[in-house]
Design a protein around this nucleic acid. Sequence first.
DNA 1: GTGAGTGCAAACGATTTGCACGGTG
DNA 2: CACCGTGCAAATCGTTTGCACTCAC
Lengths: 145, 145
Amino acid sequence: MDAAGTAMIDDQELAQRLRAAGLKATRARLLVLEVLQETGPHLSTDELVEALDARGTPLPRGSVYNVVGALATHGLMMVTDIGPGRALYELAERWHHHFVCRTCGRIEDVECVVGQSPCLDPGQVDGEVDEAQVIFRGICTKCRD
Amino acid sequence: MDAAGTAMIDDQELAQRLRAAGLKATRARLLVLEVLQETGPHLSTDELVEALDARGTPLPRGSVYNVVGALATHGLMMVTDIGPGRALYELAERWHHHFVCRTCGRIEDVECVVGQSPCLDPGQVDGEVDEAQVIFRGICTKCRD
DNA sequence: GTGAGTGCAAACGATTTGCACGGTG
DNA sequence: CACCGTGCAAATCGTTTGCACTCAC
């Protein structure tokens, strides 16, 4: 059982997904996908780099940005910017929304199905929407006290 | 008539709002609020700096960040991060959601009332939500062709 | 008068880029 | 075996910080 309670996907399947998305199944990309599976629901850049280190499969930061950019562009993972220099990464299938505490910056996951509510249907837009990110802001209970 | 079709607020009223929020009504803050009123619905950092220049009331970038941080913290304006190093600023009362084209980065405004739809009610959260930012991503019609 | 806020410059840190090498398809 | 992607380092860019001065209250 992994951290998010989701079924694990093995390397072969991950490689297939990469190819299906038109990407080569390289070591660096597989490593990032593996770590995203093995760890919690979302990771910051630092957390991703550290997780790779901790697992004995380090990647240089430059490569991490490169990999993350490619995976995100091809819909295999999601990137959410919750503030300047604060990007959150997560596997596409684990994707969810976030509640960010204004005071301590703590992040809580919020389940929220895209397209389910009228508000996540943007209505009249000059293009095709394929994703909706929602960031809730406020104060967490710990900081309120 | 300003760019957004909203009634203009004069300096005195802006100053009152600043004081009501517990902030001193300084020149720099009034300038930023004025520009946010006079220009389009949302501005990037660069656009804000350039608009201040163009109007003959320049502010150094450092001060702009300072002012924007204070105004956002006190709820007088909204900051939305639509990507790394891409912050959008807007007056609190003009606040809305955004559709961002993955290809060209063009931004379109999306009207969307917070709290109106079930999805913007985060439900069970360990804190108090006072704001929900929504970023729609996809491909605009120009890039699709 | 006094402390918050500004303006400027320097520091910082996140992200991007360029290029030679290596591995995938 | 052709090309895409990596790894590394340097460059870049957005943002933050420190400090003396100024202004709002």
